[in-house]
Design a protein around this nucleic acid. Structure first.
Length: 293
DNA sequence: TACCCGTGGGG
DNA sequence: TCCCCAAGGGT
């Protein structure tokens, strides 16, 4: 069983003070909009690739109203190669909703945030916590791995459970400011020390109360996590097609898209799905481009 | 619940 | 080279 308590949480907060990365969206002067943008960009995309895009993005669209006034085409281009470009569309849609429903102010409570496009359980809590200083337990992939090891003596986290939220909340300090810090600190611990590959237990601030370590590092049980293929999938084809359109200053003919992928059936299916998703539009004369509305 | 949705760096 | 995986969300 676990020996982790709120003392463990306090130790993680203390560790964070000495080990945290200096990331731009953690500066004290950033507002909730800047935090929201960073959190959406960080969904499944590593910090190093997000950082330069986030800087450009915030300089160009410093408020929800500024982004809401932009065309999808410009937003998709600015998203660059962060991946999963539907996130860019949803971020713009979230900006529109913030302007229309909330007077241009990012909401500060979890249920209202969760109602925005592209904002789910994790991101809503992250914005409330990091953007507004509201103590909230947050559960991302890092936190799930830390909880699995520290509390449950498991090598890996299983699929997300509602109980994850309670598990991490049980370790949080009672002081509100330290509880806020604890949420980001636990994520940081998972990102820097309690990593997915080879964990760096020698420098872990809570190794003495880690259930997994105390149990002798038992190996993962159950089915291995299946890896997503990429080469040859629709995701790759969609990426190729979008690449052509991002680079094009003018609408392009279908023949130009044909060069992006040999398999005509798959190519057609992917172009259709991009049209359905609103990532591509067809002009009245049958050409293709990033959507202008 | 399981699957789909991009991209690229590191072991 | 190949494989793992990275601050998830929507369906």
């Amino acid at each position: 069983m676990s020996t982790a308590t709120t003392d463990t949480g306090e130790a993680i907060v203390d560790w964070y003070a000495t080990a945290a990365r200096d990331l731009p969206w953690r500066r004290p002067d950033v507002d909730a909009w800047a935090v929201l943008v960073s959190e959406v960009m960080l969904q499944q995309t590593p910090v190093a690739r997000v950082e330069p895009v986030w800087r450009d993005w915030m300089a160009r669209w410093p408020t929800p109203a500024a982004l809401a006034a932009e065309t999808p085409a410009e937003v998709i281009r600015a998203w660059g190669k962060l991946g999963y470009p539907r996130r860019a569309l949803r971020l713009r849609e979230a900006a529109l909703a913030i302007v229309e429903r909330h007077g241009g102010v990012v909401p500060d409570d979890v249920p209202t945030l969760e109602a925005l496009p592209g904002i789910g359980t994790y991101t809503a809590r992250a914005v409330a916590c990091f953007g507004y200083g509201r103590p909230q337990p947050v559960v991302d992939t890092n936190v799930r791995r830390v909880v699995a090891r520290l509390v449950h003596a498991k090598a890996e986290a299983g699929t997300a459970r509602a109980a994850d939220l309670e598990d991490i909340a049980a370790l949080a300090p009672t002081d509100p400011e330290r509880a806020v810090r604890f949420s980001v600190a636990t994520m940081e611990l998972g990102a820097l020390v309690c990593v997915a590959g080879t964990p760096r237990c020698a420098v872990c601030p809570v190794r003495d109360s880690c259930a997994w370590r105390l149990a002798g590092y038992p190996a993962h049980e159950g089915p291995p996590r299946r890896v997503q293929k990429f080469a040859g999938t629709d995701r790759q084809v969609r990426g190729r097609l979008l690449d052509v359109l991002r680079a094009a200053a003018q609408p392009v003919e279908a023949a130009e898209l044909d060069a992006a992928w040999d398999d005509a059936v798959q190519r057609s299916r992917c172009l259709d799905s991009l049209l359905t998703d609103g990532l591509v539009e067809q002009t009245p004369d049958g050409l293709f481009r990033l959507p202008h509305s």
